[in-house]
Design a protein around this nucleic acid. Structure first.
Lengths: 110, 110
DNA sequence: TAGTATATATCGTTAAACGATACATATCAA
DNA sequence: TTGATATGTATCGTTTAACGATATATACTA
């Protein structure tokens, strides 16, 4: 995984996070993202299904072959997806490292 | 700061991070973002100046009044900007909390 | 003096994100 | 039993974000 890889869009990342605990179907992803993000992302079907299609195209997630429920389509991370999520998390750590002290120092004193 | 506030776009967030250490002018922000992001964001003038304008409109950053250099325009975080950055960092912490163990568990074993 | 770095700015296009709508089934309470 | 709410997938159209290219000008340096 090259370090210079472009950042995933926020919705894509949030879906990878939601699938990192366990395979989920679309509607479950939607609810999970909304709670995982502390309410900061309001994922509706419009973004959900178009982003799922993109992630499948990029081979970061795949549909679970075994049919668990007729009405539901389950998705899980691919190896490439785990790799990408790991890489993305590096960026999150970097931002926290850069801002942690500064925000504590400055916030509220201006 | 309400917790349900929408996520900042990635470029906007990266500019707030770059300005969290000290006031910077446009070109300096551009270079700083590119290194802060571990090369994941390649911020060019197209995104830079349109996003700076947006952030000023939203009152998250402001131009430094004192002229430091004729050719350069310096920007700094407003109180609202610090507040917003702090709020955004909460989301980053949340994502790390959610994924930390699972990525370590799963990555490489699939 | 030609090339690279600094510095700001805009244009046009692609890509991301969102809201609305649609449709169907299931559950649950009045 | 019917109306409301939740579940589930899907698409359309629009807005916003992001990007690449280009422009212009000065400064530095090989």
């Amino acid at each position: 995984m090259k370090r210079s890889m472009k950042l995933l869009p926020q919705i894509s990342l949030s879906i990878l996070v939601a699938l990192s605990l366990k395979p989920r179907h679309g509607y479950e992803i939607m609810k999970q993202v909304n709670s995982d993000s502390l309410g900061k992302i309001n994922l509706g079907p419009g973004s959900l299904y178009t982003t799922i299609d993109q992630l499948i195209k990029e081979e970061l997630i795949e549909e679970v072959k075994e049919v668990i429920d007729e009405r539901r389509r389950y998705y899980k991370l691919t190896h490439k997806g785990w790799e990408r999520l790991d890489n993305e998390i590096e960026y999150f750590k970097q931002i926290l490292k850069l801002t942690k002290e500064r925000v504590e120092e400055n916030y509220g004193q201006i």
